[in-house]
Design a protein around this nucleic acid. Structure first.
Lengths: 236, 236
DNA sequence: CGGCACTTTGACAATCCTCAAGTCTCGTGG
DNA sequence: CCACGAGACTTGAGGATTGTCAAAGTGCCG
C-alpha cells in the first residue's frame, strides 16, 4: 500500500476539520489511481465495488437509457465525489464516469464505507449534502429544459460550466477541459447542430470564442442576458 | 402529545424491523397533522423546520423557478417521506408540497433528526436510499424529456402514475388522486393543450378514459407500445 | 343555477430537428 | 516531415412537431 500524503485531502470539503489520525484512517483504505483521458472509471450497470474522490482532473458522468440515448449528467471537478452508489444503497453504478482529461482518483473499496460512516459523521453529512445539491441542480435543469428555449438553455449551461470549471485566459473564461458540441447538446437536450449554430452566432457577436473541443466565454454579461431572454433584439 | 399507535408506522420501509421501543421513540417526537385537500404542507424557500411522512393521501411536490415556471417534481404516496431537507443539509425546502387529497401527515421537528439518525441507522439508510432512488428517477425523466417526443413522454408518465398510484376500477386502472391536464403537462415539460389533445385521441382509440381531473388507463399494453414508440401506424 | 376552473378544439406559426454535404483540425504512421 | 484519415465542426434546406393564441364547451361546488 503506497503511503498517501494527508495534504492531498486535508481541507477538501468532505474531510474538512478532520484530525490527523482520522485523515490517516481515511487514506489507509484508499488507493490513488491514474486514469488517462477518455478512460472509463466505472460503468453504468456495473456492480458498485468502490467509491471515488477526484484528486485532479475532470470527469464526465454519462447516463444511457435502455434505448441507447445518452445525457451528460454532470462534470465532476477536483475534490468532488463520484461513484457514491453505496451512499444511496444502489447495488450498481447508475451512470458511467469517463475521464475528460488525465485524472488522479482516490479509490475506496465499498467495504470501507461503513467504517468511515461510523467514525466520520462529518464526512457522512458532507456526502449527503453533495447528493442533495446534485438532486436540486438536476431539478433546476429539468425546469430549464421544460420551459426555456434552446438558446437560453445553452447560455445557462455555458455559464454554469465556466462558473464551476472556468479558467481565466487572455480572451476570457475558458471551460477547463475539452468539451464537444455533442457534449453540450447532451447536457441541454438538443442536437449538436443547434449548439454549433448558436455558438457560431455568438462568436460573430463577440460573446464567445470557439475552437475544437473548446469554448471561451468572452462576454459573460451578454450571455447572462441571453440566458434570461432579455437580449436586445437587433435589426436584420 | 397525543398517543400515536405503533401500528401506524410499523412495517413501513423507513421503520421496518424496528423494536417496539424504537417505534415508541420515533412516535414520541412526532405529531400527526391533517392537511385538507389543496392545502400547503410546506413551501419552497421556507426555512425547513420539520420533516414528514405521509400516513395517508397523496402529495404533489412542485418546484418553481425564479422566472415563475413550475414543474411537478413528483407525487408522494402513502408511506413516503417528504420535506427531508435536513437529510440533505438544506436550510430551506427546495420545493412546495401540496395535499392532492385530504392527507394525514406525521410531522417531526428537525431537532429529532440527529437522535433518530444516531439511534436508528436503518431508518437513516432507508432515507438515503429514498433520496438516491429519487435522484435516479429524475435523471430518467431528464433522459425522456431530452430524447423523446411529447406523445411518448405522456404515455410513460401515465404508466408511472398508474403503476405507483393506480387503483383498479371497472374500466381499468385509475390514477388514485385528482390530476389535471396542467399537472401532467408540468410533469412532462409540455402544455396542457398537447396533453388534452393526446388524451382525447387515446380515448377515441380506447386506450384511456378521461374525466375532469381524472384519467383511467384501460389498455396499458397499448400505452406501453406508444411509450416505446412502437405503435402500429394507422392510415388516415 | 351561476360562476369558476378545467377541458376541448381549431388555426397558425415558429422553433428546432432531420438530412445532407461539406470543411477543418489533429494525431498517427509512413 | 508530410500525407492521410477520423473525428469534430459548420452550414443549408426543408419540414414536422408542438407551442401559441383564441374561443367555446363542460362539469362541479356552493
Amino acid at each position: 500500500m503506497p503511503n498517501l500524503d494527508k495534504s492531498l485531502i486535508a481541507g477538501l470539503p468532505p474531510f474538512q476539520d478532520l484530525s490527523l489520525e482520522d485523515l490517516d484512517f481515511v487514506l489507509s483504505h484508499a488507493r490513488s489511481v491514474r486514469h488517462p483521458r477518455d478512460s472509463v472509471i466505472f460503468s453504468q450497470g456495473e456492480s458498485a465495488q468502490s467509491f471515488f474522490l477526484l484528486l485532479s482532473g475532470h470527469v464526465r458522468v454519462v447516463r444511457t437509457s435502455p434505448e441507447g440515448d445518452q445525457m451528460v449528467v454532470r462534470y465532476i471537478n477536483e475534490g468532488g465525489l463520484l461513484g457514491i452508489a453505496i451512499a444511496m444503497g444502489a447495488p450498481t453504478y447508475p451512470a458511467t464516469a469517463v475521464a475528460a482529461v488525465d485524472c488522479i482518483v482516490l479509490t475506496w473499496p465499498n467495504t470501507a464505507w461503513p467504517q468511515m460512516q461510523e467514525r466520520l459523521p462529518s464526512f457522512c453529512t458532507s456526502t449527503f449534502q453533495t447528493i442533495g445539491t446534485r438532486l436540486q441542480e438536476t431539478h433546476d435543469r429539468f425546469l430549464e429544459i421544460s420551459n426555456e428555449q434552446v438558446e437560453q438553455r445553452i447560455a445557462r449551461t455555458l455559464l454554469r460550466l465556466v462558473r464551476q470549471a472556468g479558467r481565466k485566459s487572455e480572451e476570457g473564461i475558458a471551460v477547463d477541459f475539452p468539451i464537444t458540441r455533442q457534449d453540450i447538446a447532451e447536457m441541454t437536450g438538443t442536437t449538436l447542430h443547434s449548439v454549433s449554430r448558436l455558438l457560431s452566432g455568438w462568436e460573430n457577436e463577440g460573446i464567445v470564442r470557439n475552437g475544437r473541443q473548446k469554448v471561451v466565454v468572452t462576454d459573460p454579461q451578454q450571455l447572462t442576458l441571453i440566458a434570461e431572454n432579455r437580449r436586445a433584439r437587433r435589426r436584420a
